[in-house]
Design a protein around this nucleic acid. Structure first.
Lengths: 202, 202
DNA sequence: CCGCCGTTATGACGCCGGTCATAGAGTGTG
DNA sequence: CACACTCTATGACCGGCGTCATAACGGCGG
């Protein structure tokens, strides 16, 4: 959060994502976004002529890119890289935030999905694209760790699904246990997918 | 959906849950709930003096009880009951709905969590309670299938987490694959927890 | 000095939300 | 008939929302 020297446009997108994380899309007002970004209100219609939908779409896209970029960082930060370690790192980002700052914010993709999937707007496609932007590098990372290509994408989907659901339950219960449980229970399954290198499992 | 002969109060709670499933809490108006339930608008403040928050809380509670009750039915419907079969049945409820009626609706608990967890209201606690109402019978069912008590609750949490996340991703992508993937990948893990019966865990 | 143009400022508009106030039906009881 | 009580009806209020219209600012090339 140190780099506040970006342009007002990018700051507003970032602020939108941040506010959506907390209260959802509908609860996030345009004026509120501008205020949170320290940007003038008049800039909204200038940078986002497509209105709120455009702003939300870009916030969602930003979130997807952010999640995708973190995969490489997590991988680099692991002492001995394994699928379970990668998943643990992904979940740790959330448990750390929740223990440090409370359960005030969730995943913006989840919020946008819940509120915009039924509406016919463009946001649903933006969310779908963002999930892909997240899943693709994750699957590639798994492949790099020795997971067969066919299963890598499936496991990537599983990891994101479980993580998203665990975030939901953790927020609801105000308890990080769903997240830690997901790591503990899913870890062995993920690492088992690598062992196929040595010999046939069944 | 056949029993339309319940009282207007219960109908409104049901309608609220249904509408929340589609567009979320904020997008669901009180007037809309009454109209959807075929109930007079004036009944809202009569049956729900606590306002929208009370209505949402009850809708969430209803959803939790509904999900909890279905566990026993799923279990009874399985030819040979296994944890993976139970999970597959839970997911199938969603894939069936999505293939038949489209991806218009998600889980009301997810919507309520995303939109109300940060706000200080009572809804967050209602969601937490609803998740417990769902998880408890699921954990008991797993225990009945031979899963050790200690792991039963963890696996129940994992199942719900993964299911919720898979619902999200399926809606976003308009594709049931995340749900089917979750079933395929998680199934062996769930069934492996039963085999501990034969040998000593440690 | 003069426009030009990307940016900002500000106020108004229309709409819809939840809530309140108040009066009206309906119905069973004394 | 009178009464009480549950339920319904309806309209008004106030606030917040996204959006639009319009004007001003501000630096820079001419």
């Amino acid at each position: 959060m140190g780099e506040e020297r970006r342009g007002p446009r990018e700051r507003m997108v970032f602020s939108a994502a941040q506010l959506i994380r907390q209260g959802g899309v509908a609860a996030t007002g345009m004026r509120e976004v501008a205020a949170h970004a320290g940007a003038p209100r008049g800039s909204l219609q200038h940078y986002f002529p497509g209105g709120k939908e455009q702003l939300v779409d870009e916030a969602v896209g930003w979130a997807g890119r952010y999640a995708g970029r973190r995969i490489a960082r997590f991988l680099a930060g692991l002492a001995e890289p394994t699928p379970s370690g990668l998943f643990a790192a992904m979940a740790a980002q959330w448990t750390d935030e929740y223990t440090a700052d409370g359960f005030g914010a969730g995943c913006p993709l989840a919020a946008a999905t819940v509120e915009c999937a039924a509406a016919g707007g463009s946001t649903r496609q933006a969310v779908a694209a963002a999930f892909t932007t997240w899943r693709t590098p994750l699957a590639e990372a798994l492949a790099g760790l020795g997971v067969p290509m066919a299963r890598a994408d499936s496991l990537a989907t599983l990891m994101i699904s479980t993580l998203e659901g665990a975030i939901l339950m953790s927020r609801a219960a105000q308890d990080v246990r769903p997240l830690t449980t997901a790591v503990q229970e899913l870890g062995p399954l993920l690492d088992a997918a690598v062992l196929v290198r040595g010999g046939p499992p069944h």
